[in-house]
């Protein structure tokens, strides 16, 4: 899993992360597990109360936009097994 720059600062890492789970790998489960491992990320990717993706955040599986993918559906095997990277991206905005 790859985090955007702001969140790498917050997570105190410059590397991609490996998130492990023994549950069905869905976006919800992956992000829940990420927030257990790194609680300082709570609320920074999803709204802290509704758990909805924040407005300026997008999810990419390698180069494919999965932002509107069902959050509770099983992610593709390439993502589940870490062959491809799950990118959390801060969308470009501003001028």
């Amino acid at each position: 899993m790859a985090l955007p720059g702001h969140l790498k600062v917050l997570a105190n890492t410059s590397e991609n992360l490996v998130v492990s789970t023994d549950q069905i790998p869905t976006i919800t489960e992956i992000l829940n597990r990420l927030e257990v491992d790194l609680p300082q990320l709570k609320g920074t990717i999803r709204d802290i109360n509704s758990k909805k993706r924040r407005p300026f955040i997008r999810y990419f599986f390698e180069d494919e936009d999965f932002s509107d993918f069902d959050q509770d559906a099983t992610v593709p095997d390439d993502i589940a097994f870490g062959i491809k990277t799950f990118y959390i991206v801060g969308s470009m905005s501003g001028g």
Partner: peptide
């Protein structure tokens, strides 16, 4: 905070040398 990632609260117990979210 940022517009992308919302609100974080940081606290330090040693005058800003170390911080904890």
């Amino acid at each position: 905070s940022t517009g992308w990632h919302g609100q974080i609260v940081q606290t330090s117990r040693n005058g800003g040398k170390d911080w904890e979210a």
